[in-house]
Write a protein that binds this DNA or RNA. Structure first.
Lengths: 321, 321
DNA sequence: ATCTGTGCAAAATGTTTGCACCACA
DNA sequence: TGTGGTGCAAACATTTTGCACAGAT
């Protein structure tokens, strides 16, 4: 659900759009846009009209139709095809691109995003030298509830909030992997100054993890049900293992009791790779809370990189003298 | 394009369907079905009606509509949504499942299949425990010709024939990799009996390759334009490298001048993996010429396996005595 | 002879437009 | 005060159905 603030923001954008095209803000448009922005899901013209009529019974179908076209035109809505014979509209402002899984029995709809799938799809289009404009994937099936003949209430979730939830989860997992690395590395290094450096960075990682956990709590406070929402962002957690060495790998790589210099170099490499990964990952998303989380995380990793680099330079200086 | 034989086959299926449901074959249905089966592409009701009227001007729109429903019902056609405001129908009998890339400028449509993408999609559905019924991916973009402002004639290809073309290409490539292996392996083995065995299998691979090349020529004879059709089946040629060792790998693995026993074991392993790969690969496809090609290829690999196994057993017997 | 098929016309559905009056800037 | 907005009704586009007559088995 959009917060009041988000509604206001989008309403302002709509006003701008009207002004730019010398159109007018009217009582009807206001109530229509407000109703649209405050309702999640995939509304048809008629459904939105019904909603609007509850607030102002004089508003006509045509006006709702024309307002939805305007909203689509100014980038606040998107037409979507769920194969039920009518055009449906969904929010797109600061909401992640996604696809749909639709239950053919109860019409429950699940939204999801899979960067892997997007990438594969982009590769295919590139092979044909098409300039991709848009694409949509719809999967029709029977949901678990309908398979078991026990229909359950169909919650509708805000995909941006769910995206943020999934992004936080991923960032926390990455943070934990990093923390794990520094603690293990500190243990395996006998050189006292090196050990201290790694423990200090581990402390920082811990702080970042706490920050993320705070955000997590805040997210849950805003919407207690968000944990019930199905996964939105399909992330390959295995890819974290490629960036952050596992405990076993750390043990192996530090077996020879690396000196401080080597350990720092390893850490730098890791932070840089992690920074790049999450920055590139974020690149692909619309402006969403999820994207912001990844970018912030990437920035922190870059920060770590600099910290370690400074330490590395210091160590190198020392060894020269 | 369907051949006369394929049209007859599908017409027979339609007749069966009619009988099963105590419906009648009529002059109109015959001409409608015939027109549909002999036209490629994505026809709307109206387009097919126009086509039919050329042969029999008395046939009405409603009959075309109802006949298309019947064709869909008996599995010879599929409704498809290309977002142009009308339902379009395409052939599905013995045609591979596929998705569409549509040019928003000239409406040119490219059909493609990517097993990787299908697999990814299946994984996602499985996570939500949905029972998948069907899915469709549409990519809208601007085709290369429209990007360059020079619209060119839009050939419509038979996706089954193009699938067969791509399948043959893949099978030939795999065959070449196998041949390559046996020749290289024979070179690296000094034991005369082992060398002979490998050369003999290489000869067999060559023969299979010739068979495939013959099929290739036949395919081209049937439709000389087929090479102009865009890629339909997106195959990851890299995966062949995982099955068949590259020249470098062969060199490395045979560096120590393997004895006959070890080389035979390596070959058996390879043939078995290749057999499994292509059998599983074929599993995923509808009954199409492409599927048949992969299955035949897989069967040949299994044959090789047995041949080599026999040789292996012989060698082992010999060494026991 | 019977029962389904056909074509027409009409209905249904969902979207879009023309137009006379209304009201925002 | 005038330009754009609104609601109604009507037009449109496409799909679907009712029905009386035609035709297949």
């Amino acid at each position: 659900m959009n917060t009041d603030q988000e509604v206001a923001e989008q309403l302002a954008l709509f006003s701008d759009y009207l002004k730019r095209n010398s159109l007018k803000m009217t009582r009807q448009r206001e109530v229509i846009v407000d109703s649209f922005l405050r309702t999640n899901g995939h509304l048809s013209i008629d459904e939105l009209h019904q909603l609007v009529k509850q607030k102002d019974s004089t508003v006509g179908f045509t006006t709702v139709f024309r307002t939805l076209k305007a909203l689509t035109d100014c980038g606040l809505a998107r037409e979507t095809d769920l194969q039920d014979g009518r055009t449906r509209f969904e929010h797109i402002y600061n909401r992640p691109h996604h696809h749909h899984i639709v239950c053919v029995a109860c019409n429950r709809t699940i939204e999801f995003l899979s960067p892997e799938l997007e990438q594969l799809q982009e590769l295919i289009v590139a092979k044909y030298q098409f300039e991709s404009v848009r694409h949509q994937l719809q999967i029709f099936g029977v949901c678990p509830d309908c398979q078991n003949q026990r229909p359950s209430p169909q919650d509708v979730f805000d995909s941006d909030a769910v995206f943020a939830r999934d992004a936080l989860k991923i960032a926390m997992e990455a943070e934990r992997s990093g923390l794990n690395f520094y603690l293990a590395a500190a243990e395996h290094i006998s050189h006292p100054s090196g050990k201290a450096t790694f423990l200090r960075i581990a402390e920082e990682e811990k702080k970042h993890l706490h920050d993320l956990e705070y955000e997590w709590i805040e997210l849950l406070k805003k919407d207690k049900n968000i944990l019930k929402a199905p996964v939105f962002l399909h992330f390959d957690y295995e890819s974290l293992k490629k960036i952050f060495p596992t405990r076993d790998e750390i043990r192996k790589r530090l077996e020879g009791d690396l000196d401080e210099e080597q350990a720092l170099r390893l850490a730098m490499e890791m932070e840089l790779e992690s920074h790049r990964f999450f920055r590139d990952y974020a690149e692909k998303f619309n402006d969403t809370r999820g994207k912001a989380i990844f970018l912030k995380f990437a920035a922190e990793e870059e920060d770590h990189y600099r910290t370690i680099q400074k330490e590395y330079d210091r160590v190198m200086q020392r060894s020269v003298h």
